[in-house]
Nucleic acid binder design. Structure first.
Length: 272
DNA sequence: CTGGGCTCCTGTCAGC
DNA sequence: TGCTGACAGGAGCCCA
């Protein structure tokens, strides 16, 4: 689930509670997408540095190395002061620290916690390589989008999800940003004019920023580190609204499938 | 290099 | 009520 707003919300709520904490123990549940990549004992005694986010990944520095964390489709990170309650069947990674316990809850287990000697080498470097620009990076604008999409035949919706041009948008925000920009999600990416790229860049930033301001989207199980739900889902104008009238023109919102993922759009407001 | 499809896993819900 | 299939916020990997 977690797209950029949810991951950033997690980072912001978790950081003040865990940064500077000393790791006292690690508890592993069922296997996640990838193995931890080191002996859990190797984490004990380390101090948690400043949490960083890159795309939908979180990087937790731990001295000479750190953990690259991804929440997959159903993951969330909670933080418990003092002694944490016993882990449930979907709690697969606990970092017990001097300040409390950080717990990864992830029913589907598409998430991951991977040790890497640094952000720029080893597994972290491999996973982060090839990621596109951060949407709030000053270098991300219509010109970049236009240049990066040139020659691409893939539909613009899928190009946004691919993450090699710009990171952060997942299925919800790609749909919402394209609605905001008035662009048909099925349009081949390379066919977008420069002005429409300008519009889309602005819409993507506005959509992600808006969702961030609402603590993200909670469809079923996303929670921030304090256990709070996001509220963006109430603002979604097309995502999950197949058959409902478009708030702008009244036309029924359509759902199509692109790359095995649902795409929601207004056939009248979003043009080719 | 590009793009399409598959896969990992569990839970939920609609429909019969 | 019970079973079955579709679908769910991601993205790495393999193959054409």
């Amino acid at each position: 689930m977690p797209e950029l707003p949810e991951v950033e919300t997690t980072r912001r709520t978790l950081a003040p509670r865990i940064e500077g904490a000393n790791i006292e123990a690690v508890r592993l549940g069922k296997p996640l997408r990838w193995p931890l990549g080191c002996d859990a004992e190797r984490l004990v005694g380390r101090t948690v540095g400043a949490l960083e986010r890159r795309g939908k990944y979180l990087w937790m520095p731990l001295g000479d190395g750190g953990l690259l964390i991804h929440l997959g489709m159903s993951g969330s990170l909670g933080f418990h002061d003092g002694a944490a309650p016993p882990g449930g069947p979907h709690d697969h990674f606990d970092l017990v620290t001097s300040r409390g316990t950080m717990r990864l809850h992830d029913p589907r287990r598409f998430g991951a916690v991977v040790w890497s000697p640094s952000r720029d080498e080893g597994p972290a470097a491999r996973l982060l390589a090839g990621l596109g620009l951060e949407p709030f990076d000053a270098a991300f604008d219509g010109a970049h989008l236009h240049r990066a999409l040139r020659g691409r035949r893939m539909a613009i919706k899928q190009a946004l999800l691919a993450g090699d041009v710009v990171v952060g948008a997942g299925n919800i925000y790609a749909c919402e940003a394209l609605f905001d920009a008035g662009i048909d999600p099925r349009l081949p990416a390379g066919r977008l004019s420069r002005p429409r790229c300008e519009r889309l860049a602005a819409s993507l930033r506005a959509t992600l920023a808006g969702a961030l301001g609402m603590g993200g989207t909670t469809l079923r199980d996303f929670r921030d580190a304090h256990g709070m739900s996001g509220t963006f889902q109430q603002q979604a104008r097309v995502y999950g609204r197949e058959g409902e009238p478009c708030g702008a023109c009244g036309t029924r919102v359509r759902r199509v499938v692109q790359g095995q993922r649902s795409t929601f759009f207004c056939p009248r407001c979003q043009r080719r």
